[in-house]
Design a binder for these strands. Structure first.
Length: 304
DNA sequence: CCGCGGGCCTGAGAGC
DNA sequence: TGCTCTCAGGCCCGCG
C-alpha cells in the first residue's frame, strides 16, 4: 500500500489483519511445540482464567494455530482449544532460549519481564512467548474442540471476509432490512467477521460509500446484488489483504529474537485523518463524526 | 429480534 | 511541573 500522504506514525488496535499477522509470527515457534511450562501471572485478564489454566496447557502440543475473526485458536493435543484474544492492547513477543538447552522448572527467559506481562508460554521449541496487555481487554480461555462451534463467542460470528463465500450477494442479504448505518452494520461481527473501527472506515472509503448510508440500500434489487455491495466487498477484501501484506513485511523485521508481535505500521486513507485532504483527486476534506459513541472518519465529497 | 448505549481498562495527550 | 479530564475501542450485557 502506498501512503505518501500519510507520514505520522501510529499504533493501531488489533483487527483481523493484525491478528493474522500475530498468528503467522507465532506459528513457527508454537505449531508442533509443547507447552513446557505456563505462567499466568495474575488471576484474570478481561475474564478470570479458567480453572487450572496453566495445568491444562502444560505438556500439551499445539497441533495447529488458527484464526477465526479476531480470535487466535490453538488446537491442542488434549482436545482443548486455547482461545486467545488481543483485545485493545494485547501483544505477544518471542524470546528464543535455544531449543537444545535444557530448561529447568525455574528457568527465566533471557529477557526481563516487562510491566503488563500477564502470560508466559515456555515452549519446547525453545521459544518463550509472552503475552502483554496493559488494558486487559484481551483474554485467554480453553474450550473442548467438540464444543467450539457451539461456543457463545464463536457461534455468532459471521463469514470470514477473505473467504470465497463472502461475496456481494451474501453481504447484500445480511444487510437487507437493516435500518442501521453501514458503519454499524460492518462493525457487527455477525455481518462480517474481524472488522473494527479502522478497517470499516477504510473499506467504506474504498467503496466510495458513506458510513451514514442506511445498510439496507445494499440489499438485493431485482434479484441481483446491488453494485454498491460488490464495491464494498471489494473494498473490504482489498484493504485487509494489503494490511496483511504490510504485516508480513513487519514480521520480516521482527525475525530477530524479542520481536514484538501485535501491531504493525500501516497507512490509512481516512482513519484518524480529520481535516486532511482525501487522497482522491475528486475528494474533499476528511471529516470526523461520532456514530454510536465511536469516531468515524470519511470523505463527504467522494463517499456517498 | 433489533438497535442503542454503558462499562470495562490504562496510557497518552490536552488544558489549566 | 503536576494535576484532572477526555479519549481510544472490542466485546458483553441490559434496556426499550
Amino acid at each position: 500500500m502506498t501512503g505518501a500522504w500519510l507520514t505520522e506514525e501510529r499504533v493501531n488496535v488489533p483487527e483481523l489483519p493484525e491478528v493474522e499477522t500475530v498468528r503467522r509470527g507465532l506459528a513457527p515457534v508454537m505449531e508442533g511445540a509443547r507447552f513446557r511450562k505456563v505462567e499466568a501471572r495474575r488471576p484474570d485478564l478481561r475474564f478470570p482464567f479458567p480453572k487450572d489454566f496453566a495445568a491444562r496447557l502444560k505438556d500439551q502440543t499445539v497441533m495447529g494455530l488458527g484464526r477465526r475473526a479476531k480470535y487466535l485458536l490453538a488446537d491442542l493435543s488434549s482436545g482443548d482449544v486455547l482461545i486467545m484474544h488481543l483485545g485493545m492492547s494485547g501483544s505477544f513477543r518471542i524470546a528464543q532460549n535455544g531449543a537444545d538447552k535444557p530448561v529447568g522448572e525455574f528457568h527465566h527467559p533471557r529477557s526481563e519481564a516487562l510491566p503488563h506481562d500477564h502470560v508466559v508460554f515456555h515452549m519446547s521449541s525453545g521459544a518463550t512467548v509472552t503475552f502483554n496487555d496493559p488494558r486487559r481487554f484481551g483474554f485467554m480461555t480453553l474450550v473442548p474442540r467438540a464444543k467450539l462451534a457451539d461456543d457463545k463467542m464463536m457461534r455468532a460470528i459471521g463469514p470470514e471476509p477473505l473467504g470465497n463465500e463472502f461475496d456481494a450477494a451474501m453481504l447484500a442479504k445480511s444487510c437487507a432490512g437493516k435500518r442501521t448505518s453501514l458503519k454499524a452494520a460492518l462493525s457487527d461481527q455477525r455481518v462480517v467477521a474481524g472488522l473494527g473501527n479502522i478497517y470499516v472506515c477504510e473499506a467504506l472509503h474504498r467503496a466510495k460509500l458513506s458510513p451514514k448510508r442506511i445498510a439496507s440500500t445494499l440489499a438485493l434489487r431485482s434479484g441481483a446484488p446491488h453494485a454498491r455491495a460488490a464495491a464494498l466487498v471489494e473494498g473490504i477484501k482489498a484493504v485487509l489483504n494489503e494490511a496483511i501484506t504490510a504485516g508480513g513485511s513487519t514480521l520480516r523485521d521482527h525475525r530477530q529474537p524479542d520481536g514484538e508481535l501485535g501491531y504493525f505500521q500501516h497507512t490509512f486513507r481516512v482513519y484518524d485523518r480529520a481535516g486532511a485532504a482525501c487522497p482522491r483527486r475528486d475528494g474533499g476534506k476528511i471529516r470526523r463524526i461520532v456514530q454510536g459513541t465511536r469516531s468515524t472518519f470519511y470523505c463527504p465529497a467522494c463517499q456517498r
